[in-house]
């Protein structure tokens, strides 16, 4: 009973934290884009416009939920929930600091990637369920894109698992504290993962499923109000989870560089983790506001003809070196 209670409490805390992160990320996205486009960004609601996103959420909550007449009621309803729940659930196994984290699963990385791929269902459901042609095209694109980037993404991190010899995220960080961070061991894997993770979370320049200038809003064209907000939040949660995994796998998780990590207080570890994550997110935002969008066939070609061979080469090289070192 006690574990049950603590689990529920944990989920609530996690939800609160992630929702807050979502708000902060939306605000950050607006400010970063404004900065890159020489605008001011939100500056009216609250100090420095900090409450703008909160006001937006209130607006979305008050909006009417509109559904197309011939849309598929169940699927249309479930899609935004899955889009948010899947990346949210992935946080369960992410170690935020040495002693902070919910569950340390033996197959943690596997679990995260499995949940990450299930977002594609949400997108396809949204596209199919809303009875809209733009949404359908967006969903078809998304299915193709996510599947073709899933493969190089996982192949790119296999190198890390080969070096570490474990799938537990916490153990991977602890292993990095004893030696080099894996970004130094697996530089190619890091770059591949960053690119594939950007594509995986449908961020520009890979935001084809919701390509605004072509498909209006892609798979969530017909969504409004809180359902739309869930897609929006889901996108940021997914971005957050990919950055967390990236930091854990390659950038030493909570570790502070050039310091004796054994006797550093936990809050500093947490701070280090969060700042690394935000650095990666800033990088993703930078991509978004400077690159044009790829075309769908170029995107597929890039995934299969560039990323995939590189990931395979990386995997093969890592495997050979690990084998040679061990024997």
């Amino acid at each position: 009973m006690n574990t049950m209670l603590s689990a529920i409490l944990g989920v609530l805390i996690l939800f609160g934290v992630i929702a807050l992160q979502g708000l902060i990320l939306v605000y950050m996205e607006r400010k970063v884009s404004a900065w890159m486009q020489s605008r001011l960004g939100p500056n009216r609601v609250g100090p420095w416009g900090l409450l703008q996103t909160a006001a937006d959420i209130v607006k979305l909550l008050l909006k009417e939920n509109i559904r197309n007449e011939r849309s598929d009621r169940v699927i249309f309803f479930l899609a935004p929930i899955l889009a948010f729940v899947a990346p949210f659930a992935a946080f369960v196994t992410v170690p935020f600091a040495a002693t902070i984290g919910f569950r340390d699963l033996d197959m943690g990385a596997f679990y995260v990637f499995a949940l990450g791929s299930s977002v594609v269902f949400a997108v396809i459901w949204a596209g199919y369920g809303s009875n809209n042609r733009y949404a359908l095209i967006g969903a078809m694109r998304s299915a193709a894109q996510m599947i073709s980037y899933e493969v190089p993404l996982v192949t790119a991190v296999l190198g890390v698992f080969l070096v570490a010899g474990t799938l537990s995220l916490r153990e991977i960080v602890q292993l990095q504290s004893q030696g080099l961070w894996y970004v130094a061991v697996q530089p190619l894997g890091f770059v591949l993962f960053l690119v594939a993770a950007t594509a995986e979370s449908n961020r520009a320049p890979f935001d084809l499923p919701e390509a605004e200038s072509e498909l209006v809003a892609g798979f969530h064209t017909e969504y409004s109000g809180m359902k739309f907000a869930f897609f929006y939040l889901g996108e940021y949660a997914e971005m957050l989870v990919s950055s967390c995994v990236l930091v854990v796998l390659f950038l030493g998780g909570w570790l502070i560089p050039f310091a004796n990590n054994a006797n550093v207080p936990t809050w500093l570890h947490l701070l280090s983790f969060v700042s690394k994550v935000y650095l990666i997110i800033f990088l993703m935002m930078w991509f978004r506001w400077t690159f044009p969008r790829l075309r769908v066939d170029h995107l597929m070609a890039f995934g299969w003809k560039v990323l995939m061979p590189l990931a395979l080469v990386n995997l093969l090289a890592t495997g050979l070196i690990v084998y040679w070192l061990k024997s």
């Binding site: 890159m36 486009q37 020489s38 320049p205 390509a211 200038s213 400077t290 690159f291």
Partner: peptide, 8 residues
């Protein structure tokens, strides 16, 4: 073509 910054 997706480069929103150019617009601004």
């Amino acid at each position: 073509v997706g480069a929103v910054t150019a617009f601004l």
